[in-house]
C-alpha cells in the first residue's frame, strides 16, 4: 500500500504533458520539438505505470506496454533525426517554420 494517491501521479503526468505540448507547438528548433514529443510520451508512460500499480486491477501489463511505448518512441526519434539530417542537407535550416516546402 502506498500513501501517494493515484491522482497525484495523474496530475504530474498531466503537467508534464502540457509542458511537452506547449514546447512542441511553440519552439522553432526541430530538435527541441522532437524532444518535447518525447516528453509527452514519457508523461503517458507515467500514467501507464501508475495505473498498473494503483489502478482497479493491478497487473504487470501496464509496465509491459510502457516498454513497448519506449521502444516505439526511440525508433520514432531515430527516424525523425534522419529526416532532419536529410532536410538540413537540402535546405540548410533546422527552424521548423522555414520547412514549408510542401505547403504551396
Amino acid at each position: 500500500m502506498t500513501s501517494v494517491p493515484l491522482n497525484a501521479y495523474l496530475m504530474l503526468a498531466l503537467i508534464l504533458f502540457c509542458i511537452g505540448l506547449f514546447g512542441a507547438l511553440t519552439k522553432r528548433n526541430t530538435v527541441i520539438v522532437l524532444i518535447s514529443i518525447e516528453l509527452m510520451l514519457n508523461a503517458v508512460n507515467i500514467n501507464l505505470v501508475a495505473f498498473s500499480k494503483l489502478g482497479m486491477h493491478p497487473s504487470i501489463t501496464g509496465q509491459v506496454f510502457t516498454l513497448f511505448t519506449i521502444t516505439v518512441a526511440a525508433a520514432e526519434a531515430a527516424v525523425a533525426l534522419a529526416i532532419l539530417m536529410a532536410l538540413f542537407r537540402n535546405r540548410s535550416t533546422v527552424q521548423i517554420d522555414e520547412m514549408d516546402g510542401m505547403k504551396h
Partner: peptide, 11 residues
C-alpha cells in the same frame, strides 16, 4: 525515480 516508487524497477 517515480517508476521505482511505483514498483517498476525494470522500466
Amino acid at each position: 525515480g517515480l517508476f521505482i516508487m511505483l514498483s517498476a524497477e525494470f522500466v
